[in-house]
């Protein structure tokens, strides 16, 4: 019997138009991820890690090949189905945090729950819980501009985790942080991974991140070079 994966990619090819021709960012990747993994796509710029993360996050479609993400076939996913999948089951963490500057920490974390149409009381409880996981419950009224870079990234983690998704995708999450904050943020994510069995998938070339990963997938020129489990 075939094993059921959280993410199951088969012969994924991604081409981008470039001038009269095209540039192939991913060249027939086969990859599988199970629930609860703490894995990373590692490689230099242009190796295809962000492109792959976008396809797994249903932000982009493969040019060829396909597979499933959280049980949904990605090659035929409609925009509305992809939006629903992201809304309910995928969280994102970005390099530059991307918090809504005009909203408070509480409101930023609350946003994914608003999209889910959750009642106000339940929302409040979950937001405060999520802020508690990242140690920022006492800063819930602050604006992002009043926080340090590390604190902002922890708010972003709370925002990604508040709906307790099955999958969190983090693109270079420590690129804008110093060493101390990087370790703090990574430890937080590690704890959440262990506590909720949420799958974390990183795109990175930062040694600090790599040292925390339990699975290291090395990419080079859109091809899988090495898949290493620690």
């Amino acid at each position: 019997m075939e094993q059921s994966y959280l993410i199951d990619l088969k012969q994924v090819v991604k081409r981008f138009p470039m001038g009269k021709g095209s540039f192939t960012a991913l060249k027939g990747l086969d990859l599988q991820f199970e629930a609860g993994e703490f894995a990373g796509l590692i490689g230099p710029s242009g190796s295809g890690k962000t492109t792959l993360l976008n396809i797994i996050g249903t932000l982009d479609l493969p040019s060829e090949g396909g597979g499933t993400v959280l049980g949904h076939p990605i090659e035929h996913l409609k925009a509305s189905e992809a939006a629903l999948l992201r809304k309910e089951r995928i969280g994102f963490i970005f390099q530059s945090y991307n918090l809504l500057q005009v909203h408070t920490v509480f409101e930023n974390v609350e946003f994914p729950l608003l999209l889910l149409g959750m009642p106000s009381e339940e929302r409040r409880k979950k937001v405060m819980e999520a802020l508690d996981w990242v140690g920022l419950a006492d800063r819930h009224r602050s604006r992002p501009s009043q926080l340090s870079g590390g604190e902002c990234q922890r708010v972003a983690i709370a925002r990604a985790m508040v709906k307790q998704p099955s999958l969190v995708l983090a693109d270079e999450p420590t690129a804008n942080l110093d060493a101390a904050n990087s370790h703090h943020v990574l430890k937080t994510m590690q704890q959440l991974n262990e506590a909720f069995q949420t799958t974390f998938l990183f795109a990175t070339h930062d040694e600090k991140v790599i040292s925390y990963l339990k699975r290291k997938i090395y990419l080079m020129d859109g091809q899988l070079v090495k898949d290493e489990r620690v």
Binding site: A79, L85, K87
Partner: peptide, 14 residues
């Protein structure tokens, strides 16, 4: 556009 990108990533429909 950036803000829209974020909202779409969060699962809001276009």
């Amino acid at each position: 556009y950036g803000e829209f990108g974020l909202r779409l990533a969060m699962g809001e429909t276009k």
